[in-house]
């Protein structure tokens, strides 16, 4: 199979912290890989290693067939990177920021200006083009940063939590932009904390936690493993709980969980919901809550690891402030 990105046993330590603990992953050319994980899982570290910003302590990786350590310069020519935090020069205007990147990539001045104009209009920044980036809102900076990574029309795009801090409209526009880039042949490595986002964009998902890959598969495969959605039913009368549990268990073919006076269960087949309604109605059970919602990352974690996703920064990272 043709892999644009390939990593084999990547290890990266920061002092006591092992940020990457033998990560393997492969991204086929022209597809999107979603790197999914909670805070401190090692997503940013993985992206930085693959973008040649950090040297791994062990393991190898290649991008576009080029070794990230020995052929870093070639890798840099292929990759456009958008880091987790917008990296724009606040003292320059939006247009100058993009012009700078274009010039650094070797474009002649008129071509770099033209490209900057195109991208500014694509990212809805034309009106702000000649304002210093320090006057931009968080979302505008984010969009400028994304535009900066596209100046050189890269074959590969590394996006570290690209939609964090964007409003819903900007988020859905970014999603369609990513889809359009992929249909044009670009390979995308995208990190996210949201299963929903990985589900919407990724051809394949790699779930990492504590620097280790804990699951790999297509969104459907992962959903099959974890239940894509969660059904929650709360009967008005608590004495109906056993009956509700039995009905939900039978229809979802799973063992429902009891959270207070609420019964929850993973659901893969959407037809379950009307069936549950019918059965409970027939049995004369009144419900105060009946919902079907997307599985949260937490639930995916729970089912993958057996432990809820915890804040990795809290127990491992350098903690700021102290208990007094």
């Amino acid at each position: 199979m043709d892999h644009a990105i390939w990593a084999d046993g990547l290890v990266k330590r920061f002092g006591e912290t092992t940020a990457l603990d033998g990560v393997n992953l492969g991204v086929r050319t022209g597809t999107v890989l979603g790197l999914l994980g909670p805070n401190g899982a090692g997503k940013t570290t993985a992206v930085r290693v693959l973008a040649t910003l950090l040297r791994p302590d062990a393991g190898t990786a290649s991008v576009g067939g080029y070794d990230i350590e020995r052929q870093a310069h070639q890798v840099r020519q292929l990759v456009g990177l958008t880091g987790q935090y917008a990296a724009v020069d606040e003292m320059l205007t939006g247009a100058e920021n993009l012009l700078l990147i274009g010039r650094l990539l070797g474009m002649p001045r008129p071509a770099a200006k033209q490209r900057a104009r195109e991208l500014l209009s694509d990212f809805d920044l034309t009106d702000a083009a000649d304002r210093a980036a320090k006057t931009y809102s968080g979302g505008m900076r984010r969009r400028l940063d994304l535009a900066a990574s596209l100046v050189g029309r890269p074959q590969m795009l590394f996006l570290d939590e690209p939609t964090t801090g964007l409003d819903p409209r900007a988020r859905s526009e970014l999603w369609s932009l990513i889809r359009r880039l992929v249909s044009g042949g670009v390979t995308v490595l995208l990190t996210t904390q949201y299963l929903e986002e990985a589900d919407a964009l990724a051809d394949e998902i790699v779930v990492i936690d504590h620097g280790r890959v804990i699951a790999t598969g297509t969104p459907d495969e992962l959903k099959a493993k974890t239940g894509s959605q969660t059904l929650a039913v709360r009967p008005e009368d608590e004495s109906h709980l056993p009956l509700v549990t039995a009905v939900v268990g039978e229809l979802t073919k799973s063992t429902p969980e009891l959270q207070g006076s609420r019964v929850t269960a993973p659901v893969t087949d959407p037809a379950v919901l009307p069936a549950v309604v019918r059965r409970l109605d027939d049995a004369g059970v009144l419900v105060t809550e009946l919902t079907l919602r997307g599985a949260s990352l937490n639930e995916v974690f729970l089912s993958l690891t057996g432990h809820p996703a915890e804040d990795g920064d809290g127990d491992e990272g350098p903690t700021e402030g102290s208990l007094t």
């Binding site: 576009g64 080029y66 052929q71 310069h73 070639q74 020519q77 292929l78 490209r115 195109e118 991208l119 209009s121 694509d122 990212f123 809805d124 596209l150 029309r153 890269p154 074959q155 526009e173 970014l174 369609s176 932009l177 359009r180 880039l181 044009g184 042949g185 670009v186």
Partner: peptide, 19 residues
């Protein structure tokens, strides 16, 4: 977000270092 977000064909040969 429209036309500008397309890609060029990959360069045949990438240079190994900056001159």
């Amino acid at each position: 977000m429209t036309a500008a977000a397309t890609t060029a064909p990959p360069p045949a040969e990438l240079s190994p270092r900056v001159g």
